[in-house]
Every structure is written in structure tokens, then in C-alpha cells.
Computed example of a mutant assay.
Amino acid sequence: MLGVKVPRRDAEKVRKKLIELGILATDLRVKHNGEFVIFPVKEKVEGFEIVEETFERAKRRPHSYREVVDIPSELRPLLPSSFDIIGDIAIIELPEELIPYGKNIGEAILKAHKHIKTVFAKRSKVSGEYRVRELIHLAGEKRTETIHRENGIRLKLDVAKVYFSPRLATERMRVFKKAKEGEVVFDMFAGVGPYSILLAKKVKTVFACDINPWAIKYLEENKKLNKVENIVPILGDVRKVAGQIKADRVIMNLPKFAHEFLKEAMISVKTGGVVHYYGFSHENNLFDEHLKKIKEVAKELGRDIKVLEKRKVRPYAPYQFNIAIDFVVF
């Protein structure tokens, strides 16, 4: 194989030149020989010392953990094609058949993704008053706290103590773009503040409520981390808070149970204010049942609504979607 031999002091300058000429063999490893560096090249090039040399293949970082994971071949079709990344922590959902190979899968994820430092598998569904799930440590550092970055903000959180979905970043930015300067926002199920922190960059005040003390603890930390002062964290049951706040915009990011809190949302929103409602639905009936419930509660309260937008946010389970309905309350 042909190589270009240069003094070590000139190596970086020559490397850039060879790349510019398109003749550097990037699939082979550069050799170091005393005070000289030898670059593998695809063809001869004038102006440099050309030598014959043997080069080793360069190690390439795999594009996917599935390229390097060590499991029986008959189980490979069961490997998930994706997983959640929260900060530098990966959380993957594994079928029962793959649990015994969890360590191998975790190590493969670390090998394929340089920025990931810890890998967990989901042991349970999100459940309980605090909306958290049990996790199984597979590989990497044994910690559950991280800092997640999205939409220009930083969110410190503990994946074992609070609920957080990185898959809603686009939805959070959508709501941010609809919000207006001077608004008062009521984030009914705020968590560590992914909506609240982002919106605080734009609106007048955000009242951020959550029943999980760990969520409020991290929300307080995230206020400082992002240098926003116009958030009022509220630890407690939103039922006891509703009505004491009159907001221009209400966020109901609790899709499994949001329908149970429609009254609380509607007594907290000003006339002409907007509610961002989230739910889960089967693909055969995405919005009808939710709209029926929204209209029923509005009628009970002597109010009326106007739907602004209905949309699928993301797939949630087979044939199931996380949906959003934006509506004005009069």
C-alpha cells in the first residue's frame, strides 16, 4: 500500500491537504514511525515522499448497537430499533426473551454511542401517583441523575424518581411558538419543567404544579440552571390549586388521566384562554371520545369551547397514539 511519509511536525497540515485532494485512505490507520507519520493514500501524489507500507484497518464506530451486540442469532429480530436517550442515559424496552442478554445489549449501546454513559432497561410501565417506572441497570455508570438538553434549555433530573419523555421535545416547541409575550401559563402537571422552563423564556409568568416532590426539587434547580425567575413552582394536588390561578394558557400533559382534570383546567383558564389537552387514543377513534368529554365538562360549567387544532403527537403503543387537542374556552 502507498503511503505519504512526513515529519511529525507537519502531519496535521499534510493530513488536511490529503483530505482536500481526496486521496487519504480513511479506512486505514495512520502509522507513527519515530519522528515521522505515514498516511495511507489511494494514489501517488507529487511533492511528498512516497513509501510502500502495510496499514491496519481503521476501527469504525458502529452505526447501530445491533451491529456489534452479542446475542443468539435467532433472537436478533427481537432487538428494539430505538430507545430513549435522556441526557447521557439510554433507556431501552426489552422483551422477556432478551432480558438474560441485557448486559451484552447495554455494552453494545455504549460501544455504538460515545455520548451515552449509562444504560437501563424498563422493568415496569409508568405507574403510581408520581408517574415513575422501575429500571434495570444494564451497563455503564450506576447512576440515574443526568442533565438533558433540548430546545436550547437544560433539564436536570433523576430518571428513577420523575417522569420525563424526550420524545415530546417537538411538541413542547410547538406550544412555545403558540404562546404569546405577557401571558400567564398554568402547567398543571409540570414535572421537572420541560414546558415551564421553555415557556418562561417568553411569557410573563408560569405556575408549575406537580404532586411529586422530586419533580419540584428538580424544577427549582432547573430554574437556576436556566436563569429564569418567572416560574412559581407548586408542590401539591392540582385539584387544590385549580381556580386560584387565572391563566391565558393551560397545559394538561397527563395523557392517561387528563380527562379527569378537565374541570380543573376550565376553572383555571380565562375567557378566551387556550387549553392544550393530551390523551391516548386508538387509531380508529383518535379524537371523538376526548372531544365528547371536553364538551360535556364545558357544558356542566356553563362554558363553551372552540377547537383550534387536533393532532397526533406520537405513536404510543401498537395502534395507539398520544394525541393533542388545543381549544379555546369561552
Rank of each mutant, 00 (worst) to 15 (best):
G3Q: 12
R9W: 10
D10I: 04
A11H: 07
V14R: 04
V14L: 09
I19H: 03
E20R: 14
E20S: 14
G22H: 09
A25Q: 08
T26S: 13
T26F: 06
V30L: 02
N33Y: 11
E35F: 12
F39H: 03
V41M: 11
K42C: 03
V45R: 12
F48R: 00
E53H: 06
F55A: 01
F55N: 04
K59M: 05
R61Y: 12
P62S: 13
P62Q: 12
E74I: 06
L79V: 13
L79W: 08
S81W: 14
S82G: 13
D84I: 07
I89V: 10
I89Y: 01
A90H: 10
A90S: 10
E96S: 15
I105R: 05
I105S: 03
K111I: 03
I116C: 10
I116V: 15
K117G: 04
V119N: 09
F120Y: 15
K125F: 14
K125D: 15
G128W: 00
G128Q: 01
Y130A: 09
V132M: 01
I136P: 01
I136Y: 10
L138I: 10
K142Q: 11
K142V: 12
E145W: 09
I147M: 07
H148N: 00
I153V: 09
I153F: 00
R154C: 01
Y163P: 05
F164T: 14
E171D: 15
M173I: 08
A179E: 05
G182V: 07
E183C: 12
D187L: 09
F189A: 05
F189P: 12
A190F: 03
P194S: 15
I197C: 10
A200K: 00
V203N: 06
D210P: 10
D210G: 13
I211W: 11
N212I: 01
P213F: 00
P213C: 02
K217L: 11
L219D: 11
E220D: 06
E220K: 15
E221A: 07
L225S: 00
N230T: 10
P233N: 12
I234Y: 05
I234A: 05
R239E: 04
K240V: 07
G243H: 00
A247N: 06
R249Q: 10
R249V: 06
V250E: 03
V250I: 12
I251P: 09
M252L: 09
P255T: 07
F257W: 08
A258V: 13
H259C: 07
H259T: 08
H259G: 03
K263W: 12
M266F: 02
I267K: 00
I267A: 01
S268V: 02
K270T: 07
V274Q: 06
S281V: 08
H282E: 15
H282Y: 14
H282C: 06
E283W: 10
N284P: 00
F287I: 08
E296D: 15
K299G: 03
E300Y: 10
L301C: 14
R303E: 03
I305Q: 03
E309G: 02
V313L: 04
R314V: 06
P315T: 15
A317K: 00
Y319T: 14
F321A: 04
F321C: 04
A324C: 13
A324L: 10
D326V: 01
F327G: 00
F327N: 04
V328P: 09
V328G: 05
